[in-house]
């Protein structure tokens, strides 16, 4: 093993300031020079200091398939069968496929993404997901020219998911993205959390994570991904169209009848924080909505 002379070892303070320098360079001019993934990875690292404890992430869940009480979901979902599990990718694609969850994990390299999660109810977390870009999967199935939107569906199984007995919701849970949103590098399919496979209450075995949108867009326990030509109607759009739109981008300027969207409480913190436009991911996603009236397209 080669020895590095002590004169060449970078002191920690210099290392840190250098990183900061590179970071500011990146913010200034690198959008054309560096692949966006690299810049994004740097951003994710910044959030590592703010990680929400695993216990909070796994004990406070909006997963109405099990219960409308966030603190009850973890207990009710413990026996949930996530193997065998397949995800059917179909619709306007050249290579429709039904993929086994284990194959998906092997086929696509799993990477860690530390994202903010902002729930429409005014609370937020910082979560270290494991997963892969949704775009990687979409590239393999090759959407055709007719594909304009991606429609996602959760498992429908009233035996395992008692909440699906509630007739005032249109089960199964459906969510959707515009194709360009789905192709954005920030949109991932997550299979893990804190380096371990996803627990059932967090959407095992595979879920969507779109960090610039309210949490309900990040559909859990996915069994179907369909490329479609027209805008999918999500469960929440059906349940309360005046409250939940298709886009559901985190936006402090667009009000909700119940919760303040201008600020949020980060789980574990006492003081509220200002909510950031696009949940702090404007740089990566704001261009997707150029020219759109986001007050109307909420």
């Amino acid at each position: 093993m080669e020895k590095i002379p002590s004169s060449e070892i970078t002191p920690e303070s210099v290392y840190l300031s250098r990183r900061r320098f590179v970071g500011s360079l990146g913010a200034l001019a690198a959008s054309a020079l560096l692949p966006s993934g690299l810049r994004a990875a740097d951003r994710f690292e910044e959030l590592r200091k703010e990680l929400t404890p695993l216990k909070s992430i796994t004990s406070y869940n909006n997963f109405y398939e099990f219960s409308t009480q966030k603190e009850a979901v973890a207990g009710l979902s413990q026996g949930f069968r996530t193997s065998p599990w397949t995800v059917k990718v179909s619709g306007h694609v050249r290579n429709p496929a039904t993929l086994d969850i284990d194959d998906l994990r092997k086929k696509f390299p799993q990477e860690e993404r530390i994202y903010r999660l902002r729930c429409v109810e005014g609370w937020s977390m910082v979560i270290p997901w494991m997963g892969f870009p949704l775009a990687s999967l979409l590239k393999i199935v090759e959407p055709t020219e007719k594909a304009k939107f991606v429609r996602f569906e959760t498992l429908l199984d009233t035996k395992q998911m008692p909440g699906q007995g509630a007739s005032w919701y249109s089960w199964p849970y459906v969510e959707g993205l515009r194709l360009d949103e789905a192709m954005n590098d920030l949109a991932i399919l997550a299979t893990g959390l804190y380096g371990n496979p996803l627990p059932p209450q967090n959407g095992a075995p595979i879920r969507l994570v779109v960090p610039w949108k309210y949490g309900f867009k990040s559909i859990k326990s996915i069994v179907k991904i369909e490329l479609v030509g027209s805008m999918p109607i999500s469960l929440w759009m059906r349940a309360a169209p005046n409250e939940y739109g298709f886009y559901a981008n985190v936006n402090p300027a667009v009000d909700h009848p119940r919760w303040s969207q201008s600020s949020e409480r980060r789980i574990g913190e006492f003081f509220r924080r200002k909510t950031l436009p696009f949940n702090g991911y404007s740089e990566q996603v704001a261009h997707l909505y150029a020219g759109m009236d986001l007050r109307r397209n909420y």
Binding site: P257, R258, S260, R265, F271, R272
Partner: peptide, 19 residues
Amino acid sequence: LDYQFDPELLKEAIFKKRY
């Protein structure tokens, strides 16, 4: 505790949040 007497939030609650 929740709104911490934030005048902006309270104004929003009274004028915009019917609940």
